[in-house]
């Protein structure tokens, strides 16, 4: 399975490098959202709860953008048929797409968090290390798994761009709750608090449960 996953991943990465459709759009969207929050909240610096909330809402909506684009190339250029004709394990498609989404999210977060700490964040972002990358990685894994499922579910429907946010927002809410609760103490004014372990446990549990479900049901979304 590994060579298949690697081949699919290479194809998608090359496509992204050539068309630059997903990551730049997600980054641009995140930055605009920070600016929107600056004026909507009428605050120049954020810290603690509010800082964590704004960060997670922005990342969530950026992720929805990415999920929306995830399978579009396959659908528009018949990639599904080609993949189904090849004598390979179908789970490979899921693994490749989830890894791709994980990579996209991490790349977006690298830029978005830097911009965020310059534009809006009150306390220094360095106080949040190494907790913040850990929380982000756990959350990205969950978003990648659920996002791949939702993207595959929605891409064959008539109103794809409508179905994706409608399905993804409630499904990803536990991640936002756990992520925001876990990062709030890290972004507190005057030094980071302790990383709350139980939220990491919730994120981990979410990743494991949906990871298993996704591997079990993803094949049915490709079958034809």
């Amino acid at each position: 399975m590994r060579p298949v996953v690697a081949a699919l991943l290479r194809k998608d990465l090359r496509l992204e490098l050539r068309t630059r459709e997903s990551v730049p759009a997600m980054v641009l969207f995140s930055v605009s959202t920070f600016v929107v929050f600056r004026f909507a909240l009428d605050r120049e610096r954020l810290e603690g709860d509010l800082a964590a909330g704004v960060l997670w809402v922005t990342l969530l909506f950026a992720a929805v953008l990415g999920i929306n684009r995830l399978f579009v190339a396959e659908r528009e250029q018949g990639g599904f048929d080609g993949f189904l004709l090849a004598p390979v394990d179908r789970t490979a498609m899921f693994v490749a797409k989830a890894l791709l989404l994980f990579g996209f999210l991490s790349a977006v977060e690298l830029v978005a968090v830097s911009v965020y700490s310059v534009l809006l964040l009150g306390p220094s972002p360095f106080q949040a290390f190494p907790g913040l990358p850990l929380v982000l990685a756990l959350a990205n894994a969950g978003v990648a798994v659920v996002g791949t499922l939702v993207g595959a579910l929605a891409v064959q429907t008539r109103a794809r761009d409508l179905i994706v946010p409608l399905l993804a927002l409630p499904l990803l809410l536990p991640i936002v709750i756990a992520g925001a609760e876990a990062t709030a103490p890290l972004l507190a004014e005057g030094g980071a608090g302790a990383l709350p372990g139980r939220w990491l446990a919730i994120l981990g549990l979410y990743d494991v449960v949906f990871g298993l479900i996704a591997v079990a049901v993803f094949d049915f979304l490709l079958e034809d």
Binding site: Q156, P170, L171, L173, P174, I177, L205
Partner: peptide, 21 residues
């Protein structure tokens, strides 16, 4: 098939959501 996949995902989501909230 897609409705069934949704039903399975949702069925697992119910307990998880109650726990995290």
């Amino acid at each position: 098939r897609y409705a069934a996949v949704f039903a399975v995902i949702g069925g697992a989501f119910v307990p998880l959501c109650f726990m995290s909230v």
